[in-house]
Every structure is written in structure tokens, then in C-alpha cells.
């Protein structure tokens, strides 16, 4: 694997009201990995993603995407926020939400047209939600809503995907469907970064992992660093996960 660095984080510190949530994070994410960010609640996992994407302003440090600041590289990046971060009673349809993924490439003022609609329909097809395209979003199940969010990221046709807990509140079928799509993305050479909670599935789903708890504990290939030592350092208790080979 050519080890081009897709995402580089340097000395990143983020604070809410002067209380640091992320402290001096250095992180290099190589191109083409499917990476999990794990850590306890309040470890700053979502904050890390949001700071990389410029949604939160760090008090120190810098972020680059393929050696350039994020602002110059927006087109290369897609983001799937936590499902709970939006109001699903908003008056709009599944197709319309997926169309929002195309807004970034359109820029200000320009409106989506046939080309954008076609791309959105293809993305819906990919996540198996085409039959629901005209459904009001509040009438979708949790798993379906998550698929819609995934489709919205797919339509951006990005190189790097950031996902905040895509498996939260979805059933096993949806979880498998989503992870298969993520694996496909990696196969196509994309970089996928996922905030993940279920430690048991890390070795099965991901090939790269970052342990985070306000500070970065470790980052690297799952097979090298996903061990009890790092888990204990991250979660603060004597953590044992049994990983059967």
C-alpha cells in the first residue's frame, strides 16, 4: 500500500468553555483505511471529527486533508453526522435529504437539477432505499434513516468519509448492510473514518483503529494495536476483550 496520508492532524486542542475535550492530538490517517475511532463517552470522538471538518474551531493546532487545509478540500470529504443530531420531523422526503449531499459541489445559490437527482437516486438504490424515495423522513425506521444518511454521503462521491456512530440504534441487518458498503468504499480506495462503540466488532469490521480519551492513546493497524493494553489505557479499567483468532 502506498502510504499517502489522507488526513493529518497536528497538535489539535479543542475546548468547550476552557475545558479541554481534546488535548494535543497528533494523528495521521493513511489513505485507503477503514478506521474506527474508539473511546469512552466524553472522550472527544465526535469532537475530533467535527474539528477536522471545521464545524468546531480548535483553540490550537491544525488539520490538513491531502496536505491542504480542509477549506480547500471540501469536495474530497463527506460527513455523516449522528442520526440524533437532526429533527426527523422536518418536512422533507428521503430523496430530498439525499439530494442535500450534492449541495456541496453546487456551491452557493446554484440549484440542484436532473444530474443531481439522478445521482441521488443511484445512491438510494445502493443502500436499498429506492422504494422509499418519496417517503416522509419521520416515517422511516431508525435503520432506514441511517441508510438515508449514508446515501447522502455516497452521493458526494468523496475520497474521505467521516461517520459519527452510523451503527447507533440500527438492527443487525442494517448494520451488516452498512458495513458492507463501507468495505466496498475501502475497496474502491476511499478512506473511511468511523466513530464506533461496539468494541467486539472492531477486529471484524475495521483494519485501522485509533484509541482516544481526550488524548490520543494509540493509532495503527487493528492487528498490531487492538489489544488489552491499549483498551485498558483508553477505558481506564482493566479491560479484557477476547479476540478469537
Amino acid at each position: 500500500m502506498s502510504t499517502q496520508i489522507a488526513v493529518k492532524v497536528d497538535d489539535l486542542t479543542v475546548a468547550y468553555n476552557y475545558k479541554p475535550v481534546l488535548w494535543d492530538i497528533d494523528l495521521e490517517i493513511p489513505e485507503g483505511v477503514l478506521m474506527a475511532i474508539v473511546g469512552p463517552n466524553g472522550a472527544g470522538k465526535s469532537t475530533l471529527i467535527k474539528s477536522i471538518l471545521g464545524i468546531l474551531k480548535p483553540i490550537a493546532g491544525s488539520v490538513s486533508i491531502y496536505d491542504k487545509p480542509y477549506e480547500d478540500q471540501r469536495q474530497l470529504v463527506a460527513y455523516v453526522p449522528q442520526k440524533g443530531s437532526v429533527d426527523w420531523d422536518f418536512p422533507t422526503t428521503a430523496l430530498d435529504v439525499v439530494m442535500m449531499g450534492t449541495y456541496g459541489s453546487l456551491g452557493w445559490i446554484k440549484r440542484p437539477g436532473q444530474k443531481q437527482k439522478k445521482a441521488a437516486l443511484e445512491a438510494l438504490e445502493k443502500v436499498g432505499m429506492l422504494p422509499f424515495k418519496n417517503r416522509q423522513i419521520s416515517q422511516l425506521s431508525g435503520g432506514q434513516q441511517q441508510r438515508i444518511f449514508l446515501a447522502r454521503a455516497l452521493v458526494q462521491n468523496a475520497s474521505i468519509y467521516f461517520m459519527d456512530e452510523p451503527f447507533q440504534g440500527v438492527d443487525a441487518t442494517t448494520e451488516i448492510a452498512i458495513i458492507n458498503i463501507l468495505k466496498e468504499l475501502r475497496k474502491a480506495g476511499k478512506t473511511v473514518i468511523v466513530v464506533h462503540h461496539d468494541l467486539q466488532t472492531v477486529p471484524e469490521y475495521f483494519d485501522w483503529v485509533t484509541f482516544l480519551n481526550v488524548k490520543k492513546i494509540a493509532t495503527g493497524p487493528v492487528k498490531d494495536i487492538f489489544n488489552d493494553d491499549n483498551l485498558t489505557k483508553t477505558y481506564g479499567i482493566n479491560y479484557k476483550v477476547s479476540i478469537q483468532e
Binding site: K50, L53, G54, I55, E71, R74, V77, Y79, P81, S85, V86, D87, F90, T92, V97, M100, Y103, G104, L106, G107, W108, I109, R111, P112, R152
Partner: peptide, 22 residues
Amino acid sequence: FVFFKELKVSTFDAGLAASLGF
């Protein structure tokens, strides 16, 4: 009329709007 798309996306999902540059 000019900013309908921007209003819609930032009202529905401010996080996405920010990451897209709106």
C-alpha cells in the same frame, strides 16, 4: 429564492451545512 437550498440544508442539518461550506 436565491438561498432556498442553503436555508433548507442549514435548518435541517447544521452540521452537514457547515461541512459543505455553507
